[in-house]
Simulated scan of single mutants.
Amino acid sequence: MSRSSAAAVTADSRRLLKQLISRSSRTSGVQFPPAFLRDDDGLDPPLSRILRGGQGGDVRLKLYLTMTLLAARHPHDIRGIPAATWAHVLGLPEPKVNGARRIGDALDFLAGMKLIGIAGGQGRPRNVLLRDPSGNGTTYSWRGNRYISMPLGFWANEWIYRLTGSSVALLLVLRDMRSNRQPSDAPWLTTDQKRRYGLSEATWTRATKELTNNGLLIVRRRPQGRDFDYRRLRNTYWVSTERLDDSTSPPATPPQE
């Protein structure tokens, strides 16, 4: 976010965000299927495609995640929320004009990816219907053999304002990597495994630094291989998502880019 974006996170933004959380009636995290964030066939998954485009990607990702938070129950739709209100919720500058326009652009982009269906317009709030997070255009569902969850504290403790879109994307990726390991056995990725998430090296590096600085990530260099084999040093990643749900964390400060 720019400095003007940071200044746009107001008391009204925080009030509306809390109202959305309450309206969702959720008591735990928001679930996403693996197909939302990785593609084992070498194609770019929806998460990486949403993120591209600088600040536009930041808005698209945070809007999509927050709409998924809100539309918790069948038929997973959202009605009657003006674009300006979404802009206020996300802390965008000039929410009634430029912010609302950016929300409209984000909705069009997400509809083009078949992640949502939209109806209405012509001066009225557009209604949103969630579709399958894999982007195949079918009925919405996150259920399957496994899923990745974004803790409710991401919104409740205002991390959505503190983290950039790149860091939010990497946080989901790290949730996928974490599985059932322990901090002493943190996961690592081969080059091919890393590629399936579709995030650029610049995004990975920048987001890793940001998550580390916020106490959400521990990165270590560890040798891989048996004692008499060549032992390559790899980065291991342990994400401390419990911190997201810790309401005693320092107040959220919007990011500066």
Results as ranks from 00 to 15, higher is better:
F109D: 13
S141D: 05
R162Y: 06
V9M: 05
A6H: 01
Y197N: 10
L90D: 09
D58V: 10
I103Y: 09
R52E: 14
I118W: 00
G80S: 06
T27H: 14
H76P: 05
E257F: 13
A100M: 07
L199F: 11
G104R: 04
R15D: 05
L115R: 09
K114I: 03
S13L: 02
R131N: 04
Q122C: 01
R14L: 02
G80H: 08
A35Q: 12
A186F: 13
A202C: 06
G137S: 05
S240Y: 02
G165M: 06
D192K: 15
P125R: 03
N145D: 10
S167D: 02
L172S: 07
K194H: 03
A169P: 02
I118A: 00
L43R: 09
I78D: 00
E201A: 15
Q31Y: 09
G135S: 12
M1T: 00
R124C: 02
D12T: 04
R232Q: 11
Q122V: 05
I103P: 03
L174T: 10
A202V: 13
R52Y: 05
H88Q: 13
N235C: 08
E201R: 13
K194Q: 14
R26N: 10
K209G: 07
M67S: 14
P133W: 02
P251C: 02
P255D: 15
I218H: 09
